[in-house]
Amino acid sequence: MKKHLTFAVAFAALACGTAAYAQSDFSAQLKARQGQFRIMAINLGIIGDMAQGKSEYNAEAAQAAADTLVAVSMIQQAPMWPAGSDNMAIEGTRAQPNIWEQNDDFLAKWGDFGTAAKAIQAAAAGGVEGLGPVMGQVGGACKACHDTYRAPAN
């Protein structure tokens, strides 16, 4: 009996330890949220290179990239940003604690990205001239959020 109890306590301790580890690591959430920004960057690059004349304008490719941006904007954010996954608490992120202190504003800024993505979606197939202004709009949305909530690179 006593032996069983010891085992049980040891198991419980182990289980708690594992849970605590999983909670402070957040590697899956970091990969997910950083991955979505990568997808954004790649697709913005397709449109931005056309806007700058670095690559030839292609309405179909621009539309596909813009549709992808809108798709990213529809990913629900909350599950990827658990409390405690900020740059003061863990390594591997530039997310500042004020994301959680001013979460409504943070999510509103994410919403602004969605608005800008829809503007790109509407303009993408309409010719290269239309890309510059909407890229400016999405650039503004990116900066507005990064200005407040992302720590500088090291």
């Binding site: 954004m40 913005l44 931005g48 650039g139 900066k143 990064h146 200005d147």
Partner: peptide, 19 residues
């Protein structure tokens, strides 16, 4: 282009006071 839109050549964007 970076000074106009805030996008780096690999389409990361500016943050901090550079915004």
């Amino acid at each position: 282009y970076y000074l106009e839109t805030g996008f780096t050549p690999d389409f990361d964007s500016a943050g901090g006071h550079m915004v």
